[in-house]
Design a protein around this nucleic acid. Sequence first.
DNA 1: CATTCAGGTTACAAAATTGTTACAAATATG
DNA 2: CATATTTGTAACAATTTTGTAACCTGAATG
Lengths: 260, 260
Amino acid sequence: MIYAGEIRPLELSDTKLASEPDPKRSEKCSNITVMANDKRRILAVDDEEDILEILSFNLSGEGYKVDTCISAEEALRKDLSGYDLFLLDVMMGPISGFRLAEKIRKELTLTTPVIFLTARDSENDRITGFNLGADDYLAKPFSIRELSARVKAILRRSSPEQVTLETVAGDFMVDTANKLIYSEGVPLELTRKEYEILALFICNAGKIFSRNDILSKVWGDEVIVTDRTVDVTIARIRKKMGEKGNMIKNKSGYGYYFGD
Amino acid sequence: MIYAGEIRPLELSDTKLASEPDPKRSEKCSNITVMANDKRRILAVDDEEDILEILSFNLSGEGYKVDTCISAEEALRKDLSGYDLFLLDVMMGPISGFRLAEKIRKELTLTTPVIFLTARDSENDRITGFNLGADDYLAKPFSIRELSARVKAILRRSSPEQVTLETVAGDFMVDTANKLIYSEGVPLELTRKEYEILALFICNAGKIFSRNDILSKVWGDEVIVTDRTVDVTIARIRKKMGEKGNMIKNKSGYGYYFGD
DNA sequence: CATTCAGGTTACAAAATTGTTACAAATATG
DNA sequence: CATATTTGTAACAATTTTGTAACCTGAATG
């Protein structure tokens, strides 16, 4: 388990756990409704590779799309208009985070929110930051939880559209907020892997997933487990689904899918 | 500390709240009664007319009901029991913000949160402030953003999920005014953290909270503690709840929730 | 038929998560 | 300042979840 506040080590196996299974399309197949929920994009600019990795790893884990730049110059060569938030280190040479923010605001005329990262916490920096329209200010070393709370707060403020998403297929409903799947109104008692697989199936009813598809989406690309694990897990899900268990179909040689 | 105070029979209303956020869930969590409240009320006390105007204007814009007083004496002539938050300037003569807070806490025995405003940022002031139960501390000049973020944080923390009066779920009742939770009519002797966690659970019965959710809502975003602290605190709550302790459920890998 | 292959099932071991306890640190109280 | 209470942590125990291997089934193939 990762302890709050400490900077998470970059370990691989943890990647998938933090992020929600996020269906980011808005499609209708048969009687299935999925509500869109696109990832927010964050650009982090810092001259320390380590910090960038920490930011990227942790915020990705929270479901954000994170790009990084090692310098303000690199950032300025990019198209900055597509981002929802900038995380800027104050002290980078030759163009500081403040200067970069100024350019973003005045030359590119973007109102994208900015959070400054700084090692110092001097009053001077703080004031300059706020004059440039910083939305927040985070002194290094910062706790990951603090960072993610602020990011969340800022993004919520700037785009109040946050949909709790529920997906219904047949007699099944997925409640992603509470990690529950209802079968005919009754919640199934699923473990984490079981939930993620069944949610994947229900949210993409009819679509065939090979074992590798499932491994990569539920377990993540770094984790190495036998693909027969998928079979076993699906057997467990089916058992918990009772008579409805046969709604998880298998197409021999291709994979599994949900349907009736 | 025991939250002393007479055990008064609280009237239970049968009115179902129209705006229950989660209809599919209200069946499961049987008889939940929530008495909602309107705008949060803030009282700002400062001897500078300008500051009062700034506070009033900005916080009103955020949807709060803001009253102002130009002196501690004026504030003390008012009925202070109806407010959800006090913003007190420290340096006012002849009764300072600290003295006023002390009176509010000790003579009026209100637990209403307080944010001190001060020009100085000396360590002494800070310590005195927190001893008096300041919930936060804001050094002038402050940014409006900073102010509003803190106000929001404090108000969210002090009355979780905008519910003020009483919340009942099953045989439990939360009296947020007196910080008491009754189990079958008998008040539990909960400490502050214990109270806040259990209140959060009861007021959001059925909703799953991860350890980080709980840390962020109960401990706040800046405090850094091990997330296992949550487990221990919950164990303590369960013990104090006796046989009802198993109403705090855990969903392995996801978090805790309240329900039966 | 025997054989092979894909998938279903079971039992058990490993790993992860949660529960509990005791004690230390921090805070409040007088 | 001394004392009591509350809060935080670490260590260990219990439980739950997950992964693997082995075995079973039935269809397809020769």
